[in-house]
Amino acid sequence: MRIEKAILVFWKDWREIRRNWQIILPIVIVPLMISVVLPILLTVISGLAVTEGDSFSEFLPLIENLPNNIQMQFAGFTDQQVMIYVMAVYFFAPFFLIIPLMTSSVIASDSFAGEKERRTIEALLATPISDGELFFGKMLVSFIPSMLITVVSFMVYTIVFDVVAISLFNGMLLLPNLDWILMIFGLAPTIALASIGLTIIISAKVKGFREAQQISVILLIPILSLVFGQVTGAIIFGPIIILTLIGLFVVLDFVVFRIGLMLFKREEILTKLA
């Protein structure tokens, strides 16, 4: 494996992706929604809810579902503070995982299925770059930008909430905390890798970018079940849960990459051009 060849492929793909609004649009808008629009909306709504009084009562059962040790954290908070605190620190966390999942799968679909679809793959396969170098380069281009976006989104999200918190919580900062650090730097990469691996497998079997994208949506299911789990109080994010998830995803990464590498054979890619 010559790493410089993988990096060559990485830069080539990155150049192409940068100029493709079909890719850039989703990987910029979704993180922007989750890290900026959602927090601002929450702050505004929580302000309104508190003045009107009744909306907050609908929110109460969700809080009552939370375990006692968490409920203790906001003893003495006002209703608005509780709502913002719980949302920012707990309920939005799984939503955030959509960012590494989606960005990496959008890029990987384009890099693997898209290149097949646009018929540019044959000349690439004709070069003296090995299968492994190609695979690794394309993996890098799916992984690095999506992790950058995730980390930047996390920083933005943290800043937005801390700005809100400074005025609302008398100078107390909400984020970052250990859970979030573990999530962004431990769980997000493993999720991104699983999503890339799965997209590669799907790309080997489908005609083009769109199809690969549509099928990759199934990856949202585990994430949405996390959201649901939290809302019902069944799963509460904490270091133990996050570490367990990291473990599970590492295993999943291993499995999907083994399969992905098996399917990533020059001959297969070229002769299965639909």
Binding site: R15, E16, N20, T120, I121, A126, T127, P128
Partner: peptide
Amino acid sequence: RQTVGILTETPSLYERL
């Protein structure tokens, strides 16, 4: 692959580059 130059059936060029 290093010793041959190939013109494939489709031009196989990166159109965004």
